[in-house]
């Protein structure tokens, strides 16, 4: 089949060209490798920070203490109001009797002291335990609830958790910016390599044009060359991602810095990251060569 023959020839030419301009190809491949290692690190950090933030968000609660004179009817009204808030995931009500019973069950000392309290002398307050959907809206939700009638006070992370979560957000965003910048630099470097290939093969290109080779067929080998530069450049980052992360996970026992930050298990996700790296390598390579082909390949 004619199209397959042209495709095969272009692949062959592209691959041959990678090795023909070895020093230039090596520079492009190294740049791609370094970029993709950083991309891989950024993705791995991002996935772990994301998972940690989710864990944190999952544990985030607002405790709402009601006025001492509030009744069960008041509680029902407030519960409905809380449930209607968009950031609220779940609401659990505990009357002061339930809280007392829970605390008495926790230790004998509590049990001894609280045992003498009856419904009128129980100094505890009726309370709601609220789980929120997103940590970033925690402060706003708590402040909103605090305004309700019959609500005495509200307790939550008091901004610490939010700050941590937003810091993670900043880290993620800056990583993305750095990675995008590196990807652009790599694309330019590959583009430059292709430019030199085009220059070194200008006679061949001129003859191809004059003997009636279609533009597409002239361009195809250069696109494959960029593709191969990107693919070859992604090999080491892929190995580092798969084996490096597994190694780090085993060495650190699945936790980072302390037992609070749990690492994401290196199951199928490292292979997904590896595929992403391969795709980035290929796309950046082809984009770089496409840029050069458009700019420098006069047809």
């Amino acid at each position: 089949m004619k199209p397959f023959r042209i495709l095969f020839r272009s692949i062959n030419d592209g691959l041959r060209s990678v090795f023909r301009n070895f020093s230039l190809s090596t520079a492009s491949i190294l740049c791609t490798t370094i970029t993709l290692i950083l991309v891989s690190l950024a993705i791995l950090v991002s996935i772990n920070v994301n998972s940690f933030t989710k864990d944190l968000e999952h544990d985030l609660t607002i405790v709402v203490f009601m006025d001492r004179d509030s009744t069960d009817e008041d509680a029902e009204v407030i519960q409905r109001k809380i449930e209607s808030l968009s950031n609220v995931d779940s609401v659990e009500y505990a009357s002061k009797e339930v809280v007392k019973a829970e605390m008495m069950g926790e230790s004998d000392t509590f049990s001894a002291i609280m045992g003498s309290w009856n419904a009128d002398t129980n100094p505890l307050q009726n309370e709601f335990t609220i789980k929120v959907k997103e940590a970033e809206g925690l402060n706003k939700t708590a402040k909103e609830i605090e305004k309700y009638d019959k609500v005495d006070s509200v307790q939550y992370g008091e901004g610490m958790v939010e700050k941590m979560v937003s810091l993670f957000g900043v880290i993620q965003k800056s990583t993305i910016v750095i990675v995008v910048a590196l990807v652009v630099v790599t694309a330019f470097l590959i583009s430059n390599t292709i430019k030199i290939t085009i220059f070194s093969r200008r006679n061949e290109i001129e003859i191809m044009r004059l003997v009636g080779t279609s533009n597409f067929v002239i361009r195809l080998p250069f696109l494959f060359e960029g593709f191969f530069l990107g693919i070859i450049g992604s090999i080491i980052p892929i190995l580092i991602t798969i084996y490096g992360y597994m190694f780090a996970y085993d060495k650190l026992g699945g936790y980072l810095f302390s037992n609070i930050i749990r690492m994401v298990k290196p199951t199928s996700f490292v292979f997904t990251v590896a595929l992403v790296l391969l795709a980035i390598g290929a796309i950046v390579g082809m984009f770089g060569s496409f840029r050069s082909v458009r700019k420098h390949l006069k047809i």
Binding site: K2, P3, R5, I6, R9, N203, E204, E206, I207, M208, L210, V211, G212, T213, V217, I218
Partner: peptide, 27 residues
């Protein structure tokens, strides 16, 4: 087209040079 400066590819044999247009057409 025939040129004054021949425009032959030095790394290809006579056969390959003549076959060049047909090769690039995917024959």
């Amino acid at each position: 087209i025939v040129f004054q400066d021949f425009k032959l590819l030095p790394k290809l044999t006579v056969f390959e040079n003549v076959a060049f247009p047909l090769n690039s057409m995917g024959l």
